[in-house]
């Protein structure tokens, strides 16, 4: 997921070319307080006319407690980007208010309530504490994300490369997302010149269960894809498992073994996920 400052036309117009799975057009932290109107109007115009190809498009609005949030929704929600990202989500009450406003706008424009989803962003200790409630509150919330910088500030701890201070928060957020079968997206890695550091951080994020990671520079995208992309060996094995499964299923055999190892449901699930990441259609096997 690539962050793009909402008031930067050069970056906005190229948002779709970098191979990011999704882009985040940011009206919040990346925009100066006296340019909020300019960014909002620019993002609206860009959403209307720029082709982002297959990239999922999210817009991060300002919090409704600021003088900007409501206006952001009025301008952006009618264009129905794939998702609205809501910053500093702390309670389900906030979320309820957000959804109510969005649905009112949608009703006004005769738009459905089930197209545009919400990404709740957890950036405070209180948000972390309530994350399980937040994740299960509404089916419009289809991803939980963590804002590492703000969380570090909120906890009044030092920001480190390893991010050990927010480790528990990362894991809680993943757990809350998994429990509700929605995505968890990891925070950015800020040093864009430290490619090895980014790789290590991404490998960790993958290991603890994040389904993706945010980036602040397009140069970081390839490394993240590289980490998340299954290896050739993994793909081949997954392919074999699915192939055998289908063959056995046809013959009515439920349980079977490959290389002496029992193939059960969790292994099957994992194999299909691997193929999905590698862009291999399950039905084509």
């Amino acid at each position: 997921m690539l962050y793009i400052p909402g008031n930067n036309p050069a970056m906005l117009q190229q948002g779709g070319i970098y191979g990011a799975d999704s882009i985040l057009l940011d009206l919040e932290d990346a925009v100066a307080l006296n340019q909020k109107d300019a960014a909002r109007i620019l993002v609206r115009n860009v959403l209307k006319s720029i082709n982002f190809y297959n990239t999922e498009v999210c817009v991060r609005i300002n919090h409704l407690d600021t003088p900007f949030g409501l206006e952001d929704l009025e301008e952006i929600a009618p264009l129905q980007p794939d998702a609205i990202r809501y910053p500093k989500t702390e309670t389900v009450e906030e979320l309820a208010k957000l959804i109510q406003i969005i649905e009112a706008i949608e009703d006004k424009h005769n738009l459905p309530h089930d197209k545009m989803t919400i990404h709740a962003m957890i950036e405070t200790a209180l948000g972390v504490q309530n994350v399980f409630e937040i994740a299960k509150f509404s089916k419009r919330v289809d991803a939980i994300t963590i804002g590492g910088q703000d969380l570090t500030a909120d906890m009044n701890i030092k920001s480190t490369k390893e991010g050990s201070g927010i480790d528990l928060a990362r894991k809680m957020i993943v757990m809350a997302a998994k429990a509700n079968k929605i995505d968890a997206i990891d925070t950015v890695f800020v040093d864009i010149n430290d490619e090895d550091g980014l790789r290590i951080d991404t490998e960790y994020a993958k290991q603890i269960g994040f389904s993706g990671k945010a980036v602040i520079n397009p140069r970081q995208i390839d490394i993240i894809h590289d980490v998340y992309m299954p290896t050739e060996e993994e793909i081949r094995k997954a392919y074999r498992i699915v192939l055998e499964f289908k063959k056995n299923k046809k013959e009515g055999i439920g349980a079977f073994a490959i290389d002496g190892k029992m193939i059960d449901a969790p292994i099957m699930t994992r194999a299909t996920q691997v193929l999905e990441l590698a862009n291999i259609d399950f039905n084509s096997i």
Binding site: Q13, L42, N45, K48
Partner: peptide, 17 residues
Amino acid sequence: GALEPTINARLETAIMR
């Protein structure tokens, strides 16, 4: 070298202001 949506947005912003 701004593209059309950018020109439109900037015009709109300046006019509103």
